[in-house]
Computed example of a mutant assay.
Amino acid sequence: MNVPEEILRAVGSAEWSADHEGLSGDVWHVGSSYVKRAGVDEHDRLLWLGKHFEVPEVRAFADGWLVLADVGAPSLASADPVHAAEVMGSVLRSLHALPVESCPYAATIPVVLEQARLNVEAGLVDADDFDDDHLGATPRELLLKLVATAPTTEDLVVAHGDFCPPNVLLRPDGSTVLIDVARLGVSDRHRDLALVHRELGEEAAGAFDRAYGLTPRPEVLAWYRLLDEFF
């Protein structure tokens, strides 16, 4: 790995380990830090979101590499599903209550459709990783469906973009930390709700809806689950 010198100085000589809970992709646990290949999108969003919610401290950033402080808390992926759902509902309600005009990042339907198209053209969409109801389709076939069925209106909020149990850390005192925020931006609230409902069982999803305070629209959930196939 060609790791920037600034990143190596920030973490010191501790052993790099890819064996850890709650994170995915190019992420390593190094001493009291996590090192990840993230890019400027996540770096900038961490700094912005950190003004409103607790996020990991950014210890260094260089050439698309991030050094983040180890929060020392497990993710909700290891919690009781109903309890995790209740916590997630409360956290997401607070995130979605942030003023839309305060967020400089756009993830509206035109923006995400263009990103989906670019990902297909770049060969970044893996058809083998599609959800069961989309298996057998090609990325281009799904893209045509995505465009043809896009909602005509949006209920805009500040959305996390990848809101699922592994991306919410829970401290023993009940406080939470949000991670993996590279997709954060102004979007329809169903972009987050769709992933929550996909990840949770029926009982837990009901607990989430009660904590969040809204029953989502099934047809919009389905579209945003389809959208997620491209990211």
Rank of each mutant, 00 (worst) to 15 (best):
M1C: 05
E6N: 07
I7A: 14
L8M: 09
L8P: 00
R9G: 02
A10Y: 10
V11Y: 03
A14K: 09
S17F: 10
D19N: 08
G22M: 09
G25A: 07
D26V: 15
V30Y: 05
S32N: 11
S33H: 15
Y34P: 06
A38T: 02
V40H: 04
D41I: 02
D41R: 14
H43D: 01
H43L: 05
L46S: 02
L46H: 06
L46F: 06
W48A: 04
L49N: 02
G50P: 01
F53Y: 07
V55F: 09
V55L: 08
E57G: 03
R59W: 08
A60S: 11
F61Q: 07
A62Q: 11
D63N: 14
V67N: 10
L68Q: 09
A69R: 15
D70R: 12
D70T: 08
S78F: 02
S78E: 08
D80Q: 12
P81W: 08
V82N: 00
H83T: 10
H83N: 02
H83E: 13
A85S: 06
V87S: 02
G89Q: 00
V91C: 00
S94T: 08
V100C: 04
S102I: 07
Y105Q: 08
L118F: 06
G123Q: 07
G123W: 07
L124G: 00
A127S: 13
D129K: 14
D129N: 10
D133L: 07
G136D: 06
T138G: 03
T138Y: 04
P139E: 01
L143Q: 00
A150R: 06
T152K: 15
T153S: 08
E154S: 15
D155I: 02
L156V: 11
L156M: 05
V157F: 12
V157G: 09
P166H: 07
V168T: 03
V168Y: 03
L169K: 00
L169A: 01
P172T: 04
D173T: 07
L178Q: 08
S187V: 13
R191T: 14
R191F: 15
D192K: 13
D192M: 14
L193H: 12
A194Y: 09
A194F: 06
L195D: 07
H197K: 13
R198K: 15
G201F: 09
E203N: 10
E203A: 14
A204T: 09
A205Q: 04
A207K: 11
F208Y: 07
R210S: 09
E219M: 10
L221Q: 11
L221N: 07
Y224R: 03
D228W: 10
D228M: 03
